[in-house]
Design a protein around this nucleic acid. Structure first.
Length: 829
RNA sequence: GCCCGGGUGGCGAAAUCGGCAGACGCGGCGGAUUCAAAAUCCGUUGUCUUUACAGACGUGCGGGUUCGACUCCCGCCCCGGGCACCA
């Protein structure tokens, strides 16, 4: 860059000043209008990578932009500092997860500061901080008391070699343990859950009002997966009191039911299996329990449709016919009732199963054409369905539900794909679940006064996969808070998504020692006006945060006005390295620190803003360094305009610097004034619609025009206005250079200035290019007044020499007039 | 398989309401400066035909609507992402 712009010194100077002066600190009593801009807090994996830089550049731009609009912008940062990598590192190297994590936080903090990101650094939250753990556990206990947390049996991945539960990512694709190589089993163990399904309907319905990217909304809707249907009883033949509850979305097809299927984990499997068939059933059960989720749900498995006949029959209540009951792993215990009526003619999966097991197929819906083959799941008129015959699907559905209800067999039922949230993790480096298991009192929450329950430091990290907490006698042995007998402490820790489900509330009131956060203070800042993060959190984090907000309201810990935590969401694109997904080692090659050291933070920020739309993925290629160099060149041009310095201008080849003069405004001067105001308008609206790349392009163009203007001899006041405007408009994007240039030029702090306001009269163009077409092909262009009358525009077009030449004495067939933009003279059809 | 995105110069991209396709930047080419180079600055740069003037073609492919389509409609192809036995 320019000889008298020392990037390193200038950037360090302003970073220190912003921090020391608390420039971006906001307090509850701040008189300015409050707003809240938040980037998803990062997992501290070391120094920032380019993904972080991209994310935090967008966030910082908005914080500074809105601050210049006179708002008190709450802009906090924190660290999602619990999680598996620190624990794995501990197993490998022996370093304690705490010191490991704190070292990574230090590195990441330094990167963020070198980026020039502006935060209220007093408010930093770390998930592993005892203060945060305390309120995490406090909320857990309140959830438990409100019935929102419970303990239940759930199938988990169990490694018989390691004698422990494995996380899904520790199970390899072939269903073996990544550590011991043993075949992972599915075991039912007690786990802690949050009752997110209580809120399924509300979480679903509220999606429509969110100002979020459509695709994220679609993903959440799909994840919640509401379906309407019926639940009813199938009596088991030759028994008096046993019946099977099934769920279907297609009760209208009930007359086509030719068999029933129960999940391998269904409680009635044993009862229904007749001795002659137990061999087949048992081998199926064993296979199902051995196979991992991945295998069981793979596409190849779907073709096989593994299943076994139980020897029992059920009675179809609609026609009284007996149908065989099978056990098959294509039916999941965790959805609906874990049992289905199978209608092979109208369901693909049932059809495939029926084909393999030679079961009858009866159509109950007329397919669109007579020779239709295979299962037809669309709508149509009912056939082979007795009293439903002739009805359309919708009517038949309603009628069959009515029939079930009036005969006391079943009822209409809404089901969700969404399951309760399993929060237990058999891990050390997480927030301990504050529960004591007492032999006489059962599960007892720790007394609030005893919080936080912290994981002990003196533990051993062994590569067994078992949580060190479970092996630590001092931690495990406790006394029951109720009866004071000796008891065992819960050794599961919480899913780290719990930590991130309410941190945005804590940011509002991070020093509170009485409650997780004060409701009134939270009300001042919440909801988050703009939330920014990666799409990878489109479902889980964002859904859990929405659930937590509702749950906290219901237990009177959050303001009831804030139903949705994130008003607006922006999901940025991913960064790819030469087309492939970014890996850690590859990512290091393009480490931000390398660019901070060479071109500086401003150039790297401008690059991320300029390279393309923020929502799009971007490829980091071999050309990228050259583009970044180009950004540094642009900033150098701005610097030379704003801080003209004789010694710097003497570089040969460059046009010599001409001191601006005061004079009556010429046409060229007025044109620059107009350009200045048009630029304010364009950049402001581009920032507001997240079109940062075009805003930067516009500023580059403005800079180029000003450079030419100055070289041609500028007018002083016009040049002054233009350059000051340029620095103000650039201040959110390249904060260091703008601040330094502003200080040298005008004194004071550019980020404390008001955002420039465009004079609408100046910003408006006084001529518009009228496009003159003949048969939709451009033949001529004329500058005209923006308010030109239609007849006048047509007149100009017809008089055009070009048009005359083409038309000759032909009469135009018709003339399309769209003044002041376009006249199209049509001569042929 | 289903549901979303996306496909525009050599490259990243722009075109906000159906009206100049390619703003801005990278790279390339030419020039200035220099003993020379680097750096910097200026000019130029969609493709083809043409000495030129100019003309033709051009937004994944095929159709359609329209005076006019990157933009709207129908049918394909390719790439990326999400979900994936949810009854």
């Amino acid at each position: 860059m320019s000889s008298n712009y020392d990037v390193q010194t200038v950037e360090a100077k302003w970073q220190k000043r912003w921090r020391d002066e608390g420039f971006y600190q906001v307090d509850p009593d701040d008189p300015r209008k409050k707003s809240y801009v938040l980037c998803m807090y990062p997992y501290p994996s070391g120094p920032a990578h380019q993904g972080h830089v991209r994310n935090y550049t967008f966030g910082d731009l908005l914080v500074r932009f809105r601050t210049m609009h006179g708002e008190a912008v709450l802009s906090p940062i924190g660290f999602d500092s619990f999680g598996l990598p620190a624990e794995n590192a501990a197993i490998k190297t022996g370093e304690h997860p705490r010191s490991f994590t704190e070292a990574r936080i230090k590195e990441l903090t330094e990167s963020l500061q070198r980026l020039g990101a502006s935060y209220d650094w007093r408010r930093v939250i770390k998930s592993h901080d005892p203060n945060y753990i305390k309120w995490n556990q406090f909320i857990f206990i309140h959830f438990l008391k409100a019935g929102l947390a419970y303990r239940d049996k759930a199938p988990v991945n169990w490694c018989p070699g390691c004698q422990t539960v494995l996380a899904n990512e520790q199970v390899l694709a072939d269903g073996t343990c990544e550590r011991s190589g043993d075949i992972v089993e599915r075991k039912n163990l007690f786990q802690w859950f949050f009752r997110i399904t209580n809120y399924a309907e509300d979480l679903l319905n509220s999606i429509e009002d969110l100002d979020w990217p459509e695709r994220v909304k679609v993903m959440q809707r799909h994840w919640i997966g509401r379906s309407e249907g019926a639940e009813f009883e199938l009596k088991v033949a030759c028994t008096s009191d046993i019946s099977l509850k099934v769920y279907t979305t297609r009760p209208d097809t009930s007359f086509g039911m030719t068999y029933a299927v129960i999940a391998p984990e269904h409680p009635l499997v044993e009862t229904l299996t007749k001795p002659d068939f137990s061999k087949d059933v048992l081998s199926l059960l064993e296979r199902a329990s051995r196979s991992s989720d991945i295998e069981r749900q793979s596409t190849e498995g779907a073709l096989e449709k593994r299943g076994a006949f139980t020897g029992s029959y059920a009675i179809n209540p609609f026609n009284g016919k007996e149908i065989p009951i099978y056990v098959a792993d294509y039916v999941l215990m965790s959805y609906g009732t874990g049992a289905i009526m199978a209608v092979p003619a109208e369901d693909e999966r049932d059809y495939a199963f029926a084909q393999i097991h030679n079961l009858p197929i009866i159509r109950t819906t007329e397919p669109p054409d007579a020779d239709f083959e295979g299962p037809y799941s669309g709508d149509g008129l009912k056939i082979n369905s007795d009293w439903l015959d002739g009805m359309d699907t919708k009517t038949a559905k309603a009628k069959s539900i009515q029939w079930l209800e009036s005969n006391g067999i079943g009822k209409g039922k809404v089901n969700y794909r969404l399951r309760d949230w399993l929060v237990s993790r058999q891990r050390y480096w997480g927030c301990p679940i504050p529960i004591i298991h007492c032999p006489s009192c059962g599960e007892v929450p720790v007394d609030i006064e005893d919080l936080p329950i912290l994981p002990p430091d003196d533990v051993e990290f062994l590569p067994t996969g078992e949580s060190p907490l479970a092996r630590h006698d001092g931690f495990v042995n406790a006394t029951c808070p109720k009866c004071h007998q000796s008891a065992k402490r819960e050794t599961d820790t919480m899913d780290t998504f719990v930590d991130s489900s309410w941190y945005f509330f804590r940011f509002c009131d991070p020093f509170n020692t009485e409650v997780p956060f004060d409701i009134e203070t939270a009300k001042l800042f919440m909801p988050v006006d703009q939330y920014i993060g990666g799409v990878e959190h489109a479902i889980l984090h964002l859904l859990y945060a929405r659930f937590y907000t509702r749950a906290l309201i219901d237990i009177d810990l959050a303001p009831k006005e804030i139903r949705e935590p994130f008003k607006k969401l922006f999901t940025q694109g991913m960064i790819r390295l030469d087309g492939s997904k970014m890996s850690k080692s590859k990512g290091n090659l393009i480490a931000p620190s390398k660019y901070f050291d060479s071109v500086g933070a401003d150039a790297l920020r401008i690059f991320h803003l300029f390279v393309g739309p923020p929502a799009d993925d971007m490829d980091w290629t071999s050309q990228t360094d050259e583009v970044i160099e180009g950004m540094a060149r642009f900033l150098a041009r701005v610097w030379r305009l704003a801080v003209p310095d004789a010694s710097d201008q003497e570089i040969s080849g460059r046009p010599s610097y001409i001191e601006p003069v005061s004079r009556e405004l010429t046409a060229a001067d007025t044109a620059i004034r107009k350009l200045t105001h048009a630029t304010i308008e364009k950049v402001t609206s581009d920032f507001n619609r997240w079109s940062f790349n075009t805003a930067i392009a516009c500023l580059m163009d403005f800079t180029n025009q000003l450079t030419k203007y100055q070289a041609a001899g500028a007018e002083k006041s016009v040049m002054d206005e233009a350059v000051n405007t340029l620095l103000l408009l650039l201040a959110p994007s390249a904060p260091h250079l703008s601040a330094e240039a502003w200080e040298r030029k005008n004194g004071g702090h550019v980020h404390a200035q008001s955002w420039p306001l465009a004079d609408p009269i100046l910003a408006k163009a006084d001529t518009v290019t009228l496009i003159i077409q003949v048969d939709s092909k451009v033949k001529d262009k004329v500058e005209v007044a923006p308010d030109i009358a239609e007849t006048e525009a047509i007149g100009i077009a017809l008089e055009s020499a070009k048009v005359q030449e083409i038309l000759g004495d032909k009469e135009p067939l018709r003339i399309i007039a769209r003044p002041p933009r376009l006249i199209n003279i049509v001569t042929q059809n």
